[in-house]
Design a protein around this nucleic acid. Sequence first.
DNA 1: CGGAATCCCAAAAGATACTG
DNA 2: CAGTATCTTTTGGGATTCCG
Lengths: 131, 131
Amino acid sequence: MSTVDGIEEPVFSAWGPKPASAHECNQSLQAVQDALYVLNGKWKLPIIIALDNGASRFGEIQRAVNGITPRVLSKELKDLEMNEFIVRRVYPTTPVSIEYELTDYSATLQGVTEALRNWGIQHRERILKRN
Amino acid sequence: MSTVDGIEEPVFSAWGPKPASAHECNQSLQAVQDALYVLNGKWKLPIIIALDNGASRFGEIQRAVNGITPRVLSKELKDLEMNEFIVRRVYPTTPVSIEYELTDYSATLQGVTEALRNWGIQHRERILKRN
DNA sequence: CGGAATCCCAAAAGATACTG
DNA sequence: CAGTATCTTTTGGGATTCCG
């Protein structure tokens, strides 16, 4: 993999800074696998985005996220709470009102959601154009 | 939602450009759901990254992606081919050799993988620190 | 309204073995 | 090497009901 005089260094792609060492490759790949581990499934990021868009009540979130059932939403909210992406607040009104709120830590996901949103937009256009 | 003199504009978060209209919120959320639809599961992005890191043969990919079984890898590769992220090339050597290669379109995922990688790295550190 | 509980099914994924 | 076949387990998620 080292550059030999007069021989072009192989260009792997337009992607990362470089292929770098095999070790760094594995690290990078492992990081993505780590990320996908906590963000698994099709609901977690959409829920976080819904909360960011202003939803806070269970029903609001359910309406915002296309197609999720209460059963699944309930479970996902617990997951997100465990991973410290949201907090669940109970207000002693009558009847009690419950609000979900993003934590500061969830803000670190900004780059991820932004990248996914941008990619999703152009991907959708591409699909529509093809048909 | 417009700024009134002397009254702070409500800040929803440190995220997107703005909450904007409910319509735009839904669009943004839908875009992410679109993206997650084709990138679903824990394997697709890691496989793409492995390919980008230089792997091209079935066995290489399997070794690069931590924990994937041949059965699942086979299925995921077909999915990725269908979605035009990779191409499968058969070379008439003896025995035949088969190579998987990223398409140009897969390069559009660069932003997504980079964001996930960066987030994954700091998330891992956070978890390790907490324990 | 905001869930929890239960039941159930289908799809996804893992383990292992095997083949051209 | 590049998968397939088979089997088992796990997960996701729909439907429905119930509760405070």
